[in-house]
Design a protein around this nucleic acid. Structure first.
Lengths: 134, 134
DNA sequence: CTTGACCTTACCATCGTGGCAAGGATGAGA
DNA sequence: TCTCATCCTTGCCACGATGGTAAGGTCAAG
């Protein structure tokens, strides 16, 4: 496996782009980066593991601020699981709200789409709705 | 009703902030704005109606690019309703995709939340999952 | 004439990501 | 050893839609 690895391999193995790896570092999300004499970043297996953690968290929709907290809890052996659960519950609640908002849009639009002939004529219930249907 | 009105009243009546009214103008989304000698923008009833159209479109989740098209179609008497329907259908499809992606996150997180005790102990299936559940 | 509410433009911040540019490092083949 | 491709470095700009703030002009009521 040849550890440590350059940023390119760390990116490939974690699924995070090299660009984002540097960005996360600038946010203080990655603990510390060893460098070669010429300045190349060197990633250990543990570093790549942290990157994978961040990737998985992003894939689940957590914000960078939330991920910062989660990484901190992950690396803190004296954490309370309630702290993690609180963050996750808040995120799920936000997801629920956003989903409901989008479903509401979707319902309205689906109804309008159903009414619209979609032919060459200009009459269009979608535009009528957007114009305030008066 | 006293037309035309300043940007503040136009904003209040349309539900769009004055800031955004200026922004939409800079995007070319509002046709033309009359000005007083001192440079104040003057909005007619038709202008406010257009702002309401934009507001309603934003509330339904359309992007500014899509709204630019929709406003153009709205003001074009020779439009084909199929053009409108195509835009709306594409938007609904995108909404569907985003909703499904978020529901997938929600399902995963809900399962993890259900497993997490949320107490003072450090053991946490949520963190285990983020860390790659190995 | 002052005061306060309104208007003007212009710039910066958000959030997460991508792109580009200019330059250094490294390693493989000629 | 020279060269070239590929990698790495930093730094800046962009997105989309919105908010904030600052510095200044305008207007109407007191």
């Amino acid at each position: 496996m040849s550890w440590p690895v350059n940023i390119g391999l760390a990116a490939e193995r974690s699924g995070v782009s090299a660009k984002m790896v540097r960005h996360y570092e600038s946010l203080g999300l990655l603990p510390r980066v060893q460098r070669t004499d010429s300045g190349y970043r060197q990633y250990t297996a543990a570093d790549v593991h942290t990157l994978c953690f961040i990737k998985r968290s992003r894939d689940l929709g957590f914000s960078m601020a939330e991920i910062t907290e989660l990484v901190g809890l992950w690396q803190n052996r004296r954490r309370a699981s309630s702290s993690v659960k609180r963050i996750a519950q808040k995120h799920v609640d936000e997801l629920t709200q956003r989903i409901e908002a989008m479903q509401s849009m979707q319902r309205t639009l689906s109804g309008l789409l159903h009414c619209c002939q979609g032919d060459e004529r200009p009459d269009c219930p979608i535009l009528d709705d957007l114009a305030g249907r008066h």
